[in-house]
Nucleic acid binder design. Structure first.
Length: 713
DNA sequence: TGGGAGTCAATACT
DNA sequence: AGTATTGACTCCCA
């Protein structure tokens, strides 16, 4: 039965037999072509589907905003608006699309001659997928597709820049700027706010939310500056430190009660990661207070951690004497540019982007289901204390073929599989431990470590060290950060060796090799890099097919996802910029794909029994070990009649109220949960489909399909 | 508290 | 036996 329930898309919609628009443009034929080559043939005049170009460094896949494909585009004159709108694609969709793009703010293109970010206005759609063979590489798709692209800007180069400065904490912080920047970072890196609030501010999520939403003018803050200082310090840390902080796993509490523990503010426990037992810390605090002219009283108040709680009152605890700024009125204030204004280092920033910027984005740190393996490495540092480009740090141990003409420096060791501190699901009702808890924490942490396992390279004390160290960074005034940073080299230096550093993968034990590969797969992407998920998916699909790699194995080992998930992911990838916390999988896929074949194959070798990558779930499972496992409702099988009815209803009203759903359920004799699930799933899948369809690439596919079916195969 | 995002995983399909 | 589909779930955020 065919139910065309989505007229909007129907001009090209092809609904599957089940009535769902699996692929509205029916592009599979095109994309799955066998000749959907691995080799870029750019010279032929025939428009063709581009294939990842085999660049020396990465197997040709998908690093945008650097060099390459875009230049071809630009040089060929294919990137300008006229060509775009008057060229091959002249249908309304395109135009509409283009206009959309135009409305969008600056898009940064890889080889835009214009080195000024701000001026790099969109003169082309983000996905240059119209014609020519080397297209499909995204420029900065993220920016282009984001609703508010202007706000998205690389900040890491600046951070490094800042880091090089021996700048004391300014006497003034433009809190608004600061918060805007943080908001961007949170967005860019998919940072889980609650985690940030907890680990950086040691506050609840509402506090952070309020700070970000209603930043108080610095001069009007009497109590609560510390929050801003911590944010400031965090933002100015080198990226790996920033991520390290967020990645640091706070000891799991034993008290699991969901009821919030009331903590006497006067006896507020310290954050887990604070160890006041060090003189050092006291010194730093003193320095900080002096530097910032913060009285001990103020400091003391602000140092009182707020218990984890969603209680909105938190913010008031936090800043008891806030001067009544009208909420949101900070706009009116004449706030001078602060040091944090990123514009002052645009050049530097841009340059760095071109050089493969230093930053990596934060992939998938939130989705708790899976990615305990998507780790961030603690990058070793060069001897001058300057952070080494994490990207450059990525090693391709066996990838001799990558080293030869690589522009990147590739260190002999690289991804440091820092087993430390994998974030665990924090439990509700968490509280901060007091000093008295230290022992207990230590124990519980050890427990965790043990369970966590086998290859753990760090001891609990190392974790505490890290935690303490990070705390110092966060609470420290700028001018001592460098010192701490330098000091940290020792700390991280000791952990910076990867198991298979010296030898290639094969001679190590399986576990070591596994860790090694896991590190490679989980390695983050350089900052500001967008993946063309469609190409990636197609390339991998083809790879699996030609190499006869079962999807199931691939899914488990490479993607660390279930087979069905990966199938869907590969077959119907979401445009990179539409992916929220799910980028990690794509990055894993990409990381795998760019490995040398031998390594690629080894990872999916059926004969090798790799340990199954750890699942974050374990934390949950452990926690709820005693509780009865929630049983899953058995799949409902909708009768075709029910399904049709639901689809029709959905078309009319995709978001029925609970009442309506109840009515529907009753009428169709379905479980209300099933009805709710249906709407939820259908909404989601419809939206996903629309996102994919919005992808200019699809327009191109469409175009190709219409105009030259099979011509170029 | 409801909705979106990301998944799992049962099971339909090839 | 491997892959695609899709109902159910979990986690987050607003």
């Amino acid at each position: 039965m065919y139910q065309d329930w989505r007229e909007e898309d129907s001009e090209a919609a092809m609904t599957s037999s089940s009535g769902y628009p699996r692929d509205s443009f029916g592009t599979d034929a095109l994309w799955d072509t066998e000749n959907f080559g691995m080799t870029p043939t750019s010279s032929s005049g025939i428009p063709q589907v581009s294939i990842p170009v085999q660049y020396p460094n990465n197997n040709g896949l998908l690093y945008q905003s650097q060099h390459g494909p875009w230049s071809a585009q630009t040089n060929n004159g294919m990137m300008d608006k006229d060509n775009y709108s008057n060229g091959n694609l002249e249908n309304m969709v395109e135009k509409e699309h283009y206009e959309e793009m135009e409305r969008a703010e600056p898009v940064v293109y890889a080889n835009d001659e214009n080195t000024n970010l701000l001026e790099a206005k969109s003169s082309v759609p983000a996905y240059q997928s119209t014609s020519g063979s080397n297209n499909f590489w995204n420029s900065n798709s993220y920016k282009a597709w984001n609703d508010n692209p202007t706000t998205l800007k690389s900040t890491e180069p600046m951070d490094n820049y800042m880091h090089l400065l021996d700048t004391p904490l300014p006497n003034y912080i433009d809190t608004k700027e600061l918060c805007e920047k943080l908001t961007r970072e949170i967005h860019n890196y998919n940072i889980f706010r609650q985690e940030f609030a907890k680990k950086v501010l040691n506050k609840g999520p509402q506090v952070l939310r309020n700070i970000l939403k209603y930043p108080k003018p610095w001069n009007e803050i009497r109590y609560g500056r510390l929050n801003y200082i911590r944010i400031y310090n965090w933002l100015n840390l080198p990226l790996e430190k920033r991520l390290g902080i967020l990645d640091t796993e706070l000891p799991e509490k034993k008290c699991e009660t969901s009821e919030t523990l009331k903590v006497d503010p006067l006896n507020a426990p310290l954050p887990e990661y604070v160890n006041l037992d060090t003189n050092q810390r006291t010194e730093r605090v003193t320095q900080e207070l002096n530097t910032n002219k913060i009285s001990w009283g103020e400091f003391a108040k602000n140092q009182q951690p707020i218990q984890e709680s969603r209680d909105v009152n938190d913010e008031y605890n936090d800043q008891p004497l806030q001067i009544s700024t009208n909420i949101g009125s900070s706009d009116d204030l004449d706030i001078p540019d602060s040091l944090l204004n990123s514009s002052y280092c645009d050049d530097y920033q841009y340059e760095n982007q071109l050089l493969h910027s230093n930053t990596m984005y934060n992939q998938q740190r939130n989705s708790d289901t899976e990615d305990s393996n998507d780790q961030y490495s603690n990058q070793p540092h060069s001897s001058n204390g300057k952070p080494i480009d994490p990207y450059r740090q990525r090693s391709f141990q066996n990838g001799a073929n990558f080293n030869g003409n690589s522009e990147r420096h590739q260190s002999s060791h690289s991804v440091n599989f820092d087993k430390m501190a994998r974030r665990r699901q924090t439990s509700p009702g968490m509280r901060s431990p007091s000093l008295d808890d230290v022992t207990y924490l230590d124990e519980s942490y050890r427990e965790i470590s043990d369970e966590e396992s086998s290859q753990s390279t760090s001891s609990s004390s190392a974790d505490f060290k890290a935690v303490e160290y990070y705390e110092e960074l966060l609470a420290a005034p700028r001018k001592i950060i460098d010192e701490a940073y330098r000091k940290s080299k020792a700390f991280h230096g000791t952990q910076a060796t990867s198991p298979s550093d010296s030898q290639a993968s094969s001679s190590t034990s399986d576990t070591e090799a596994f860790e090694y590969y896991e590190g490679l797969l989980a390695a983050p992407l350089p900052y500001d890099t967008a993946l063309d998920t469609k190409i990636l998916g197609d390339s991998i699909l083809q790879e699996l097919e030609t190499k006869k790699i079962p999807q199931t194995i691939f899914a488990r080992r490479v993607a660390n996802r279930a087979q069905g998930t990966v199938s869907e992911l590969l077959r119907n990838p979401k445009p990179w910029d539409c992916v929220k916390s799910g980028r990690g999988v794509y990055v894993r896929l990409f990381n795998w794909y760019q490995l040398p074949v031998e390594q690629r194959m080894e990872i999916v070798d059926k004969k090798i029994n790799w340990p199954v990558p750890e699942k974050k779930k374990s934390a949950d499972k452990r926690r709820s070990a005693t509780e009865a496992p929630a049983k899953k409702k058995p799949r409902t099988e909708f009768h075709p009649v029910q399904k049709t009815a639901l689809n029709i209803i959905f078309k009319e009203n995709p978001m029925p109220s609970a009442d309506v759903m109840a009515h529907i359920a009753q009428t169709l004799e379905l479980d209300i949960r099933a009805v709710a699930n249906f709407f939820q799933n259908t909404r989601k899948r419809t939206n996903d489909q629309m996102k994919r369809n919005r992808h200019p690439q699809n327009d191109y596919e469409d175009y190709q399909k219409e105009n030259q079916q099979g011509d170029y195969y």
